[in-house]
Simulated assay, not measured.
Amino acid sequence: MALSDDEVEKQIRQMKQFISQEANEKADEILVKAEEEFNIEKGRLLQTEKLKIDNYYDRKEKQVELQRKIQHSTLLNQARLSVLKAKDDHIKRILEEARQKIGEITRDIPRYQQLLKDLITQGLYQLLEKEVLIRCRKQDYNLIKAIYESAVLAYKKGTGNDCTVTLDDKEFLPPDCSGGIDMYTQQGKIKLTNTLESRLELLSGQMMPEIRSMLFGDNPSRHFRD
């Protein structure tokens, strides 16, 4: 049975509505799916970028902390060096004051003469030579001339060895020398310095730990004592 034009038109409209509805539903489905995928991708990208940013700032924070530690260590070392320099400068000033004052002992003639005798005797024991030349300050020449033979006798009594000692009357110790003597053997090849300055330097070197302890207290990092 043939359909009338109205019925055909009606069926066409129904088919168009169905197709349109299907298309709309499909489009909605595609949009929802696309929205879901967009949100998933956006979340993934955000998480990735967030991790990058977190890692970047973690590295920056570590770099800043490292720089802070380096700066702190540098400043600490500089402070320690400054303290050490200040301590060394203070010790140098004290030793310089001591060096300037050691010359005062020469004003006490009997005491200074006994010291000269002891320095000569000690020097003879150290050298253990048969011939020794003594050089002194010009102003000490007569003091030493009066006592050096007794020092030789003390040396001979202690060692059983003879020694010929000559007192240099042509060349003397420099004017800035505080006192004491120089001793020479083997035509000047061997020299023993027994001036007051040299004795002070020797003594201060040996006692430097004790000097530092007296001035600044015990060093907490020092674990052994001589």
Rank of each mutant, 00 (worst) to 15 (best):
E22G: 13
D168A: 08
I134P: 09
S4K: 06
P209A: 10
Q67P: 08
L200M: 02
Q67H: 10
Q113W: 02
E96D: 10
E129T: 05
T166K: 03
K138V: 02
I144K: 02
K69Y: 13
E25G: 09
K138H: 03
C177H: 05
A27E: 11
L46Y: 14
T74A: 05
L3A: 12
I94C: 14
K85G: 00
A151V: 09
I53R: 00
P175H: 09
G179H: 00
L51E: 00
D140E: 03
I147Y: 02
S82E: 11
G43N: 15
Q114A: 04
L215G: 00
Q186C: 11
K33F: 12
Q71F: 01
E129K: 14
I70F: 12
E37M: 05
R59L: 07
D118P: 11
K156P: 14
E37D: 11
F18N: 12
E35Q: 07
R107P: 09
E149G: 06
V132R: 03
M207R: 14
E29T: 14
H90E: 13
E65S: 05
P220A: 05
R80F: 10
L95K: 12
Q21R: 12
L84N: 11
T164I: 04
R59D: 04
C177A: 13
G180I: 01
L202M: 13
Q21G: 08
C163L: 05
D88R: 05
Q186D: 07
M214L: 04
M214F: 09
E9H: 03
D176P: 07
L203N: 12
Q71M: 00
K33P: 09
E29Q: 14
Y56S: 05
Y57G: 07
L31K: 08
D140F: 00
L46W: 12
K92W: 12
A27L: 15
M214D: 07
S198W: 15
R137I: 11
L192E: 04
K117V: 10
R68F: 03
L173I: 11
D6A: 06
D182M: 06
M183Q: 07
L203P: 06
M207F: 15
H90A: 05
L133R: 11
I211G: 00
A146T: 15
I19K: 06
D168Y: 03
G188K: 04
G43R: 15
L143A: 01
Q186R: 15
L81Y: 10
F18W: 12
G103Q: 02
E104F: 08
T185L: 10
Y125C: 12
K191S: 00
E37F: 04
L215E: 04
T74W: 09
E201R: 15
E197I: 00
Y125T: 15
R111V: 07
Y148N: 08
K189H: 06
L46R: 14
A154H: 13
D88V: 07
V64D: 01
L167R: 03
K170A: 13
P209C: 03
L45P: 04
A86F: 11
Q114G: 01
Q126A: 10
K87L: 01
